[in-house]
C-alpha cells in the first residue's frame, strides 16, 4: 500500500510482444511474461486494460498482521452495502403513508419491529444506542452474507477484466471485517460497563465472580478474563467461519469436472446456505444485545 501497487497484478512492459507471444507460440503465461518483462500495476492503472493477473510466488513470508495492505474488495463491498442499507431504510421511513403500505415497506417495517422486539425482550435498561446498533448489525450482515448466493465467479470475472486479480464479494468472508465488528462490540461492552456500573463495578464483576472471596481474586480474574476475551473472538470468527466455509464449498462444487451434474450438489447446499445466512446475522445481533445487557446489569 505504501507504493500504491495492486497485489498480484502486473503490467507487461511491452504489451504487443506479450500478446504476440501468447497467441503465436502458445507458451505458458509465465514464460511470456518473463520475456516481456513486467512491473507492478498501480492504482491508476486499473481499468485501462493493461493489467494482467499473475501470481509470481510468495514474496517473502507474510506475517499475520500486515498493516500495509488494504482489501479494497471487501471494504468497498461493506461500504456499498452500508449505503444501500441506509438509503433503503430512509426511503421506507419517508414514504410511510397511512394508507395501504407497499410490500417493500411492509418488509422493512417487519424487520424493524422484529429487531425492536428482540431488543426489548433482552435489554431492560434505557439506551438510545442499542436498538439502532442491533438493526445496523443485523441488516448489514444479512446483506453482506446474502451476496454469497450469487454465482461464485460472477463478480470476480468482471473484476478480472478490469485487472483486479482477486475479488471477494462476500465481505463477511474476510476475517478483517468480522473481527473488526466484533472488536467494536467488545469496546462497546467496556463503554456500557463503565457507564452503567462504573469502573469499580466492572472490576468487581471481573474479580469477584465465580468465587466471592478476595483471596481467589487472581483465579477469578483468569476465568473471567478468558470468558471476556472469548466473546469478541468467537463472535467474529463464528461469522467468518460460516461464510468462508460456505463459499469454499461453493468453489469446490464449481470445480467438479462435469458441469451438468453440479446442480445436484449446488442446489441443496444453496438452500441450506440461505438458512445459515439469516441465522448467522440473527445470532450476531442477538449475541451483541446479550453481551451488552450482561455488561450493563448489576448482579
Amino acid at each position: 500500500m505504501r507504493d500504491g501497487s495492486v497485489v498480484d497484478s502486473i503490467k507487461p512492459n511491452d504489451m504487443a510482444q506479450y500478446e504476440a507471444c501468447l497467441t503465436q507460440e502458445g507458451e505458458a503465461q509465465a514464460q511470456c511474461i518473463e520475456q516481456a518483462g513486467f512491473q507492478q500495476c498501480k492504482w491508476t492503472d486499473l481499468g485501462q486494460g493493461t493489467c494482467v493477473p499473475y501470481h509470481h510466488g510468495h514474496s517473502g513470508a507474510g506475517s499475520i498482521v500486515n498493516p500495509y495492505t488494504i482489501n479494497i474488495d471487501s471494504l468497498g463491498m461493506t461500504i456499498l452495502l452500508g449505503i444501500v442499507f441506509v438509503l433503503l431504510f430512509r426511503y421506507a421511513a419517508r414514504r410511510s403513508t397511512t394508507g395501504v403500505p407497499s410490500k417493500l415497506q411492509c418488509f422493512i417495517e417487519m424487520t424493524f419491529e422484529f429487531t425492536r422486539d428482540t431488543v426489548n425482550g433482552i435489554f431492560h435498561l434505557k439506551s438510545k444506542l442499542i436498538a439502532p446498533l442491533s438493526l445496523t448489525v443485523f441488516v448489514w450482515i444479512f446483506l453482506m452474507n446474502s451476496l454469497d448466493l450469487l454465482p461464485i465467479d460472477l463478480i470476480s470475472y468482471f473484476a478480472g477484466a478490469i485487472g483486479i486479480p482477486y475479488f471477494r464479494c462476500v465481505a463477511s468472508a474476510d476475517v478483517n471485517v468480522t473481527l473488526s465488528m466484533a472488536t467494536g462490540v467488545f469496546l462497546l461492552i467496556f463503554i456500557f460497563s463503565f457507564r452503567n456500573i462504573g469502573v469499580m463495578g466492572f472490576i468487581k464483576s471481573l474479580t469477584m465472580h465465580p468465587f466471592n472471596t478476595p483471596l481467589l481474586m487472581p483465579l477469578n480474574l483468569i476465568l473471567e478474563g478468558v470468558s471476556l476475551l472469548s466473546k469478541p473472538i468467537s463472535l467474529g470468527l463464528r461469522l467468518f467461519g460460516n461464510m468462508y466455509a460456505g463459499e469454499m464449498i461453493f468453489i469446490l462444487i464449481a470445480l467438479i469436472p462435469l458441469w451438468w451434474i453440479q446442480w445436484t450438489l449446488n442446489v441443496p447446499w444453496a438452500l441450506f446456505h440461505i438458512l445459515i445466512v439469516t441465522l448467522q446475522a440473527f445470532i450476531f445481533m442477538v449475541l451483541t444485545i446479550v453481551y451488552l445487557s450482561m455488561a450493563s446489569e448489576e448482579e
Partner: peptide, 8 residues
C-alpha cells in the same frame, strides 16, 4: 489471510 488495514 491476514489482519491488515481493512480492520481499521
Amino acid at each position: 489471510m491476514e489482519i491488515n488495514a481493512t480492520f481499521l
